[in-house]
Every structure is written in C-alpha cells, then in structure tokens.
Design a protein around this nucleic acid. Structure first.
Lengths: 354, 354
DNA sequence: CTGTTAGCGCATTCAA
DNA sequence: TTGAATGCGCTAACAG
C-alpha cells in the first residue's frame, strides 16, 4: 500500500507538501502540486487515508443514529423514515454522513456503538433502562434523544404524547362514544402481546406507550370511564398485521366497543382491516382514531382521524441538537394536532337513543 | 483526554494489558483486569478509541451506500427503502454499520466518499458518467452497483429492465390498445421534464430510464407502432406529483391515448390521480401499467398492474457482494414478474369495434 | 512556499 | 500471563 511518505520520498519532498497537495492545493506552487499528483497516480496512491485523518483531526464527519429495532424493521416505519429525512436534511448541508446503528441485539449494539466513528449520536425511541444508553454515554460524544423518556442533561425532542392521547379520547367522547377498546403499542422489546389490564403498563419500557395510555385514561376519566372498563390489547409488533390481530380480538368482546383508541396509525390501519373483515362499517358501526399521521393515514379509505406530529421537524431538531449541543434546550416539545377525517363519527348507540 | 497509556502508567502496567482488559478480557488475570477497569473508570477513560483502532486494524466496521439523490429524497422512494432493508438484513448479522452517502452535489459527494470510514461501497442508481464513480474507485475498496449500468469488473445487480418494459407493452397490446402514452422517469439529474421524442433518450444518463424506454419500443414494435407515434413525457422528478403533471399533459393530446406505459409505480399513481381529475375511469377509459411493484401499488384503487422486482433480495445480494467481492459474479440478474391487477383492461375502441 | 518535528491512540508481534 | 517495542498514515505547528 502506497502512503503519503512513499510519494514524498520518491519525489524528495516533505510529507507535508504531499498532504497539502491533496488538502490545500493552493498552499503549494502549481508546479510542485502537479508533480506530486502525477507521482501519486503513478504509484497508485489512493489518496489520504480517511481513518488516519480522523485520528489526527479528531473529526469523524458523520453522525450516528441508533434505532431500538433492527434496521429492516426500522425502515418499515414511516414515522422513522420521515424523521430520518429531517435528520438528513440538516446533516447533508454540513457534510456529515449518517451512520445507522441497530440496537435490537443489545450486546451487539454496545459493540457497534463503541466502535462507530461518529461525532455524535441521535437516539431514537430506545426503551427505558436499555443498556445501550450507558454505552452511548461512555462514548463521551454529543447525544440527543427523540421520542423517548427525556434523560436529564441530554437534549430531548418529542411531543406531549399524553396530551395528544387525551385529545383523542375526548374527541370520541364528544361524539357520544362510551364503550371503548384500546390497541396499544408494545410495552417493551420482547412483548408477546395480548389482552392486558391498564396496570400492566406500569412496567412499560416505551415512553410513548406509557404516555399515550395515561392520556387515554385521563381523557376517558372525564366521562367517569376507568381503564378497567375498557378492553386493552397490546400489539406484539408495530405493523399493520399486529393491529388487525389486536382489533379482531377487541371487536369480539361483548359488549362490542363502538370506538377504538389506537396508539399508532399503522396499528389503526390494521384495525380498519379487521373491522372490514368483521363486516363493521367505519365510522358508522365503529370509530377509529390513530396516532402520528403517517402519509398512509390520509390515503386509506375511510381516511383516518389521527394526531399529527411533525416528524420531519423533529428530525431536523435532534440533528441540530447533536451538531451543536451547547445551543440546545433540555427538552423541545413539538405541537401536535388532532386531524379529524372520516374514520370517526357519532356513536351508534346515540342514534337509537340508548 | 485519558488514553490507554494514562491508565497503564497510573497502574504501572503495560499498555498491552490495558488493551487486553478491554478487547480480550480472558487473556488476563481476573484480578489485573478488574484493577484496570476500575482505574479506567476512575480516570474517566472512554474506552478504546474506535478511530485509532480502525487505523491499527484496517477495519472500519461499516459499509457505505451512495445514493444519486439527496438523502431526504432517497428516503421518499419506497423502492430504495426496501432495498435498504435487504442491505441491512445482511449487514446487521455481521456487525457492519450502514453509512448513508448522498451524491446529489457531486463535489460534496466526492469529498464525502474520500473521507468515509467504510470497508466497501454499495452504489445505487448512479447516472452514467457521474464523477462520483471515479472517486469511488480511487478509494480502492470493494464496490458493487445496483440498478445502474454495469461497469466491467464491478459486481452489478439488477433486473432486465428492457425485457420487463417490453412485457408491459405486450400486455397492453394483447388487451387491444393501439394508442399509447409513455411517462418516463428522468433522463438525468437535472432534467426539467416535459414532452420529448424517443431519440432524446439516447442522451439518458439513467440506465433504468433508457432500458425501459427501449423495452417499450421493442414491445410496441411488435404491433408496428413506432415511438414517434406515441406521446412521451419525461417527468421532472420521481414523485407522484410529477406523474400527475405528466399524465395531465399526455391525456390532453388528441387522439387521447387509451393506455399509459409508466416507468415507475410512483409516477403511475400520480397518473391515476390525473385520470381521476380528468374524469377518466381506469381501466374502462384508460389502462395504466407501472413498474416496480412498490407496496402502494397493491393498495391504490384500482390496484396497479405493474412489474414486480425483488428489491429486498437485490439489497441482500449487493450487500453480500461488497462483503465478499471474490465470491460474486459480474452481474446478477434478478427475475421480474408482470402482476396484472385492476388498472389495465381491454381497449375502449375495441368494445365499439373500431 | 516548503520542510521539520511530533505525535493522534491503538493493537500486534515477540520475548520474557 | 505479562510487557517492550513498533508503527498504522496522517496533519498541525512552527521554522526556514
């Protein structure tokens, strides 16, 4: 392998000059520069080794983003993709590459994190208590979190999930619904899913799940409805299929809920499929409200009522936080909006005066 | 900053032992190991510096993937996402991180490529003649390309786009269509789009675009139809909106085409929106065939007839090629399939015997 | 404009 | 088991 030094020696010039020929061509007489470049080509020099440069300069030129899931899984999540777009939108102009780091296998993740050449880490949706977090802190690089429980001293960006969920519940209450089902996201990475009771969520490792459940609870509480009185099903993964499975069970309870509070749009879309399979018309027989407002939410039929949150902006903001930690507030709370579309309507009981 | 040496000195042991304490804990007496780890913690040692280790070992533990577009754009492409899933599926088990590198700005891309700490590069859909390619070769790392013109000596994975496109044309011909419109993908990164003639495509820098056009040409040729006799519109970007714009123009030509050959599903979905806006029923008044079979193709109404290609598998294959270049054939051609759904039907003229 | 000097932090021989 | 020595390839000061 040819190095800087080889070409310096071959030419009888200093290593600095060779380095300059590549990095600061204007600090060199054009003639010398050309001779150096020519000789470099002749010797098959591949250009300054990026790793050696990093070692010398202390700059990696990349920022890492760690996902709680496996990467193929993460890519199936439209919310994560949009977030990534926001991150990329700020990294690209400042010439930082993006390094994707999965954290499903926590041991592997720790190794990956310890050996990633990055200038900082974005941490997405990690469950509480994950051993990945300590590994991250040990790297001593700037950190910022998105969509997870804020950690003191580390910039966090998120929305008020609890308030968003409460808004969903109130929307349904306002429409006259009184019998509810809840389809919950996973409580932790190894959930097997199934019917659960509200108190189980005390153990939830995912902040979004916990908060949204509390929001539903608070919202329903305004009508005197307790979580014990509602059917809760925890999905076993974030996909549409899991939502369908969940809804199939929830909708066979009696009395059948007239409204479903669903913690994510993907699950909600699955729930709509379940309703169709059961011959239930949405929203006539059943109202469904999702969460997130992923692009598909507006495209399904009927279009999904949901909570919109600004994933792209959130991505931009975390990226900026990692790039300039000093200038970043401890927690950035983004606004959310209830987007009322066609999947929610008046409670059927009401129509018959019950 | 604390280093290996600091802790070695503080403890009066060798640097080797400290290194071993972290990397080969079993090569050390448990007692010494514990003392080292304790002292490391005490001194605030962050663990072996990944960059220094890379320099020493020559392994970056990551593979790069370069996109022709900007990253936010690339992420909006369902095909790219699925490909990425495949790539991730093979990188994850072997503990390689994924480094995303945009190449829209070619100068910036060259710098990014020269300074990326990766063990190899996957190159996706780069236009022919891009200056990014030479920069990539100069790095002297394993390379593999997907969905672009194969370069001798570099493993390539793709499908036979030309044959796939020909299949689309024949399908429509078989249904009795004789008046066609073509909605083409971009010919190069700076296309402004608009109505074009077939010969313009001689200049196309994107292999998929060129090949698919040739395929349409060959297919239509079987019925004696020349490209001159069909309306061709080049979209100015890959998104649905561009497809709608294109179709709006194409469908206002007279005589109006009864069938649209569209080079991608995203454009085709846009074209369906255009048809709807013009009050044209698909497939009664207009047949549309896409390309790629992205997930949305099955979900739109009517469901899109299209060419399915195995993006996930393609991702796995390129990744494997970069990881083990020796074991890789020069070009891997994947199969494709015409998926006939509801967006294509008999030509309307035929019904009235014209 | 050009060269000299001095490490960046580590892992890997090899010998003890 | 442990340690000493060596250099991976580069760039940033600084001096000429």
């Amino acid at each position: 392998m040819t190095t800087l030094r080889d070409i310096a020696e071959a030419l009888g010039v200093s290593r600095t000059s060779v380095s300059n020929a590549f990095n600061r061509p204007d600090q060199l007489s054009p003639d010398l520069k050309d001779r150096i470049l020519a000789k470099a080509k002749e010797l098959g020099y591949l250009g300054p080794d990026p790793v050696a440069r990093m070692l010398r300069t202390g700059q990696a030129g990349a920022i890492g983003i760690v996902f709680a899931e496996s990467l193929p899984f993460a890519f199936s999540d439209p919310a994560a993709i949009t977030l990534l777009q926001g991150v990329a939108a700020v990294c690209e102009p400042v010439d930082k590459a993006l390094v994707l780091l999965p954290a499903l296998d926590e041991a592997a993740a720790q190794t990956a994190i310890r050996s990633a050449a990055v200038d900082g880490f974005i941490v997405y949706c990690l469950p509480e208590g994950s051993p990945v977090m300590p590994a991250l802190r040990e790297r001593g690089r700037p950190l910022a979190t998105v969509d997870q429980r804020p950690i003191p001293g580390i910039p966090a960006v998120r929305i008020d999930d609890r308030a968003g969920a409460e808004t969903c519940a109130r929307h349904l209450l306002d429409l006259g619904h009184r019998r509810f089902g809840i389809i919950a996201m996973e409580m932790n990475l190894t959930s097997t899913g199934g019917l659960v009771t509200g108190d189980r969520f005390a153990d939830s490792r995912f902040s979004g799940t916990t908060e949204r459940l509390r929001g539903y609870e608070r919202g329903l509480g305004r009508a005197g409805i307790l979580l014990d009185q509602v059917v809760i099903y925890e999905a076993d993964d974030p996909g549409e299929e899991a939502g369908k499975t969940a809804a199939l069970t929830v909708l066979q309870q009696s009395p059948r809920p007239t409204a479903l509070l669903v913690m994510s749009d993907r699950l909600a879309i699955g729930a709509m499929q379940a309703a169709e399979a059961l011959g239930l018309a949405v929203p006539r027989d059943l109202s469904i409200v999702g969460f997130d407002d992923i692009p598909a939410a507006a495209q399904v039929t009927p279009a999904l009522t949901t909570i919109r949150q600004p994933f792209f902006e959130k991505g931009r903001t975390v990226a900026a936080a990692v790039l300039d930690p000093a200038a970043t507030p401890d927690v950035t709370l983004f606004p959310y909006d209830l987007i009322v579309r066609s999947s929610t309507g008046p409670a059927p009981d009401r129509a018959v005066g019950s």
